[in-house]
Structures are given as structure tokens and as C-alpha cells.
Simulated assay, not measured.
Amino acid sequence: MLLSICIPVYNFDVRGLVSDLKKEIGTNGIDAEIILIDDASLGNYKKTNQVLQNEVKNFIFLEENIGRSRIRNLFQKYAEGEYLLFLDCDGKITDKNFLKKYTEFIQKDQETKVIYGGRSVLRHAPGPEYYLRWKFAIERENLPLGLRLSKPYLSFQTNNFIIKREVFEKIHFNPDFQKYGYEDLLFAMDLKSEKIKINHIDNPILNNDLETNTIYLEKVAESVESLTKMLRDKSLKPKLSEVKLVRLYNKLFFKSFIELFLADKTLYALKSKLLKGNDNLYYLDLYKLGLLIKDMKE
């Protein structure tokens, strides 16, 4: 069984990740190929990663950035494996049997279509400037296997998953959404609508890129913009009904409450509080809700 390891690259040094993968491929005798597609990274990152061109099966450099969804779809053109393993470029392998755990699961269950392995971050808290993204990962993303199994579609993320080629040929990431945010959830809900099971196993990859509170809140705003666009599409809106932020938004009935959040000073106050990093994620939920209300109003 050939496994195609697909890594979209954007402004990150992937030499360590590729080295770790190649080491396990050799040590555990994994039948695998590695494919990299660079989504128009800055020149210094391209130069750094170019040394990998002779180390992997394919390394494609795009001239223009095509976004998170389209670049993942593009791997189908180059991958030859029966299964495709997608990894984020900022991930770090922490288990010497990382690939083996996936292949053994597939060998035991020949009906496997999709597997999500999970994610982790460093257990030690970073400085306050980086704390918000880390706290969100610890409390909301790095869920134990039991919790992920209870909500297999809502718990799915694209940082570390395997999909059978024949499934990916039918169900792609929606190319209309190029920016950061909710493209993974929409993909999961497309799988759900087709009654394709998402298996979950305990095989996390470490998120190896610390984001400042400022950068993370910029990504939060971008993700809410993407969600707004999805909600305005009548064919997509029903698929998002289980999303926590959407459920909160749909429960709003009081005009005064909505107008409070539409006030720029309210959003500014919440953002200022969040930039300090060490705060309850309740305020992040309120900030996202305020952004969504504002975006939906425009």
C-alpha cells in the first residue's frame, strides 16, 4: 500500500519534518512517497527548502498563492498512493512510529476511508505575547481521543489526516474559500453528508509554530470572514448548524445586544483584553461573535 505524504508549504522551513519522515520510512520500511507544494512562499523560505528537491518524490513551487483549499486539492494531481496523508508544514513528528500507526490501522480495517490522528502543542506555557494561541490549542483543539470520538466530524482538523484516494477524488475542499478558517470543518461536513466515517486515533503531530497574539487575532478575523461567506451560501449554511459560533449567533434575539456588539468600541475593548494573552477564552468567544455579527450586518 503506497502512502502519499502531502505537505503544503508556506513560509516555513520543512527540512526537519521531511528528515524525520524519511528516517521512519527507512527504519520501518514504510511504502511511502513525499510530495511538497510551495504556495508562493517568500524567497528566503524557497531558497532554504530547495535543498529538498532531490530528497522527495515531487517538490512543486507555485508562482501565485492559491490558498489552503486549492493547494490541498492540487495534490491529487501528483500523488500516486492509495491513501493520502496530509500534514501541515509547521508540524513536528514526536513518535518514531508515527507513520506505522497509520498503516497498521488501515491494515486492520480495510474499510477505512478517513483517519484523523490529532494534534498537540508544548505543555509548558509560552510568554504572554504567544499565550492566546497556545491556550486555545490546549483547551479547544488538543482534545483527548475519547472526546474526539464523541464528535468525530466537529473534532476533525486538516493538520494531520489520511484520506483514501478514491474518496478524495469525489470530495474535495471547497475551492471558493481560499482564506484561513473553517475550510476543514466544511470538508468534514461534506464527508458527513456522504456518510463517510471519520476514524480517530491517538497519533498526534506537534504544532511547532508559535503565533503571537496579534497574528492569531488577525487569523481569527480572517476565519470569521470565511464563515460569514459560507453562511451567506444557502447550500452551505445547513452544514454549519453544529458550529458553536453559529449556534450562538442563531440564538441572538435582542436587538440591543446585537447593537452593543456592532459598536467598534466593544470589539476594540475585547481585542485589547485578548492581546494581553492570559485571559479566559470566554472573551475570545465574545470577540468572534461580535465579528460575526458585524460581518453578517455588512
Rank of each mutant, 00 (worst) to 15 (best):
150 S>W: 03
201 I>T: 05
132 L>H: 09
213 N>P: 09
153 Y>M: 07
133 R>I: 11
57 K>I: 13
25 I>N: 03
212 T>M: 01
35 I>D: 02
283 Y>L: 11
7 I>G: 12
3 L>V: 13
223 S>H: 06
129 E>V: 07
79 A>E: 01
243 V>M: 07
118 G>V: 10
220 V>N: 08
238 P>T: 10
139 E>M: 08
236 L>E: 08
232 R>V: 00
206 L>E: 05
252 L>S: 10
162 I>P: 02
41 S>A: 02
159 N>C: 13
160 N>Q: 06
233 D>V: 14
257 F>W: 00
220 V>Q: 01
5 I>C: 07
35 I>E: 00
269 A>Q: 10
211 E>R: 14
70 R>N: 08
31 D>P: 00
296 M>Y: 10
246 V>L: 00
242 E>R: 13
104 E>H: 11
1 M>Y: 06
198 I>F: 04
25 I>K: 01
41 S>C: 11
212 T>G: 09
13 D>E: 13
203 N>R: 07
236 L>Y: 12
167 V>A: 12
201 I>M: 07
200 H>A: 01
143 L>W: 01
123 R>E: 12
157 Q>R: 09
158 T>Q: 08
27 T>M: 03
226 S>F: 05
93 I>Q: 00
262 L>K: 15
86 F>G: 06
203 N>P: 01
183 E>N: 15
183 E>Y: 10
189 M>N: 05
93 I>M: 03
46 K>P: 06
210 L>M: 10
45 Y>K: 05
154 L>E: 02
91 G>I: 13
266 T>A: 00
36 L>M: 00
147 L>N: 13
227 L>M: 02
19 S>Q: 13
126 P>C: 12
139 E>P: 04
104 E>P: 04
165 R>K: 04
223 S>Q: 09
45 Y>R: 06
195 K>L: 12
6 C>D: 14
231 L>H: 08
28 N>M: 04
52 L>H: 02
265 K>C: 13
7 I>S: 11
211 E>H: 13
186 L>Q: 03
199 N>H: 10
39 D>R: 04
241 S>Y: 06
97 N>L: 02
214 T>E: 12
41 S>F: 09
245 L>Q: 12
58 N>H: 12
248 L>P: 11
175 P>W: 15
65 N>G: 10
195 K>F: 10
221 A>K: 13
210 L>Y: 11
70 R>Y: 05
176 D>Y: 05
79 A>S: 11
54 N>M: 05
64 E>N: 15
57 K>N: 13
201 I>F: 12
285 D>Q: 13
5 I>P: 08
114 V>N: 01
251 K>H: 09
192 K>S: 11
97 N>F: 05
112 T>E: 01
49 N>K: 01
151 K>W: 03
1 M>F: 15
186 L>P: 05
42 L>K: 15
205 I>C: 02
58 N>K: 11
159 N>F: 02
178 Q>N: 14
9 V>P: 03
276 K>R: 10
163 I>E: 04
52 L>A: 12
68 R>T: 12
2 L>K: 14
200 H>R: 04
99 L>P: 00
180 Y>M: 14
28 N>F: 02
61 F>T: 15
149 L>W: 09
212 T>W: 00
133 R>D: 08
100 K>R: 01
250 N>D: 09
121 V>H: 02
277 G>Y: 02
17 L>N: 01
258 I>A: 08
22 K>E: 04
52 L>T: 09
